[in-house]
Design a protein around this nucleic acid. Structure first.
Lengths: 220, 220
DNA sequence: ACCTGAACACCGTTCAAGT
DNA sequence: ACCTGAACACCGTTCAAGT
């Protein structure tokens, strides 16, 4: 199951000599590794080997593997571009589709994100901006928080579901009993299903917000 | 990080002697273990120790760890009760809430489910029944498959999102900067948010199905 | 503070035997 | 066919030392 690991750049230092590591270098190497080989292949020992240091050298720059994974997740969340133009509906659609696209651009990091929350600064910024947008259609306080949780759960949850099916799709489709009407069911949902669900949720949000709306805003 | 493992019932057999293992016994022990100690604690070696055999003895009854996990997942999916009474809307709501409740009854197995598809017989039965129900409101073929994927992705995805936040909630809430309007945002979505989203999706499905509907059926 | 060196307590899985 | 026995190739993390 394992292919023998290549110990590429061997370290050549005596005790006390520095390798010049930084947290950024560790995170960067981790990202290259997880992008190339997947989340299962991300190990402290592999990162260390890639950097030419012993495994425990990493612990001078990150608390443990969980902390490192949280840094990877928040870095990725920071790459989500926030839409500035369009109606409320258009911008809401855009930011959620952009979130999905960003997560799918690094499936292995998204897998890590789905396993554990990881609420770094970028996650908080996104939440804050989402609340500001809900304020535009008259949603504030607990009601706004609820709608935020419905929408974010849909996007992140959908990606989680997608990722869990993407890989095993071909094998599963081939194993299906033919002629039972199940052809295509083993298929993973994608852009079409995601957009359908998101539109329906936004319809619901707008209808739910209506009785509360005081100020006027273009909802698309 | 590790607490020293207790090697409880030590095996007392000489080569050739049988322990009387079955696939069911292996799955059953695995389920007790994952229920008690979580998905991270589920290891082939721990299961073997619990059964009083050497680790590799398990490989006579399951292909590998993935196959064992798939058995656990499908067993859990088999415990989803299918609703028989009520309108289409009521039954659709019921089966999805029942699916979420079943998954949350074994969070560690749900976590495994979210990481990898696992399409056993029980997963297929659920899909088949869902398609039959969509047929009642006039949805067939690819359109029915699309709606099925929207709804199942919402339920499983929502649970995935919930599970990823549930554990780290208290710590995250405490770490939040106070007075930024973010109080309660770190909170995990729950029954309320799930039901809201599901209702909105069902509204969308019914509106989407309408132009296609030929036969008459009570939609609630 | 930042590394090496060595160790501890685990993993999943395979291959070769025994009955 | 179903187990023991022994091994292989990995893990994350800690503790003690060096500069």
């Amino acid at each position: 199951v394992y292919s023998k690991q290549v110990p590429h750049p061997q370290q050549q230092r005596r005790p006390g000599e520095r390798a010049g590591l930084t947290t950024e270098a560790v995170v960067g190497t981790a990202r290259r590794l997880i992008h190339r080989d997947g989340s299962d292949a991300l190990s402290m020992r592999r990162i260390a080997a890639e950097l030419g240091v012993l495994p425990n050298a990493l612990y001078s720059h990150v608390a443990d593997k969980q902390a490192l994974e949280d840094l990877l997740v928040d870095q990725l969340l920071g790459e989500i571009r926030w839409p500035t133009e369009g109606t409320w509906r258009e911008r809401t659609l855009a930011v959620h589709r952009e979130t999905r696209a960003t997560l799918l651009s690094e499936p292995a990091i998204a897998t890590v994100y789905v396993q554990r929350a990881g609420r770094g600064p970028n996650a908080l910024r996104l939440a804050q901006r989402s609340l500001q947008m809900l304020d535009e259609i008259g949603l504030t306080g607990e009601r706004a928080a609820q709608v935020f949780r419905v929408l974010i759960a849909h996007t992140v949850g959908f990606v989680a579901f997608e990722l869990s099916r993407t890989h095993s799709d071909r094998a599963a489709a081939a194993a299906l009993p033919p002629g039972t009407g199940l052809d295509g069911l083993a298929q993973s949902p994608g852009e079409l299903e995601y957009a359908l669900g998101l539109e329906w949720l936004i319809d619901g949000v707008l209808a739910w917000a209506k009785p509360q709306r005081a100020r006027k805003a273009s909802t698309g």
